[in-house]
């Protein structure tokens, strides 16, 4: 790094404007005159130019999702801005785990084994009230067997 004269006015921030060709003609002539006389500013100009070239040759990748500038136009951490993916994924995983735990801990419907002989008796008793009592009741007087 080339030392610059601390007492002189150097270009500093003007360098970027100079590189971007944003200086007025008079200011540009003044800057060029300074660069011709100041080795330190010339060295700094070379460094800034090299850095810009290095950035320009980097490959361009599309962002997966906008980090800023959402529909609400807010900034990260403000309402309307999605949280970082990893955190959201963790929240969903936790919710699913809680739901699954609740589902398994909730009491299931009781296991039922209908007593067919008893239900058949109830049916025959009811049917015999409005039907023929003889033919409705006789079948339940024999051993009620379902199946072979």
């Amino acid at each position: 790094m080339i030392p610059r004269d601390p007492g002189a006015d150097h270009l500093d921030d003007v360098l970027s404007a100079y590189l971007d060709d944003e200086l007025a003609p008079a200011a540009r002539h003044e800057a060029e005159a300074h660069l011709a006389a100041c080795a330190g500013c010339r060295a700094e100009l070379d460094e800034v130019s090299a850095a810009r070239r290095a950035i320009r040759i980097l490959p361009v990748h599309a962002a997966r999702r906008p980090l800023v500038g959402t529909e609400s136009g807010g900034l990260p951490g403000t309402p309307g801005v999605p949280r970082p993916p990893s955190r959201r994924r963790a929240v969903w995983a936790l919710a699913a785990a809680v739901a699954a735990a609740i589902a398994f801990l909730l009491p299931r419907d009781p296991e039922v084994a209908p007593s067919l002989p008893s239900l058949a008796d109830s049916h025959a008793a009811r049917a015999s009230i409005t039907g023929d009592p003889l033919t409705q009741l006789a079948p339940i007087a024999v051993p009620v067997r379902f199946g072979p």
Binding site: R108, D109, P110, E111, V112, A113, P114, S115, L116, P117, L119, S122, H123, R126, A127, T130, G131, Q136, R145, F146, G147
Partner: peptide, 21 residues
């Protein structure tokens, strides 16, 4: 003829043999 539909809460157990004693 008569037709009875009996309903009770729950689910059928796996042991079908218990249905008919």
């Amino acid at each position: 003829h008569g037709l009875s539909v009996f309903e009770q809460r729950g689910h059928l157990g796996a042991a079908e043999t218990t249905l008919a004693g």
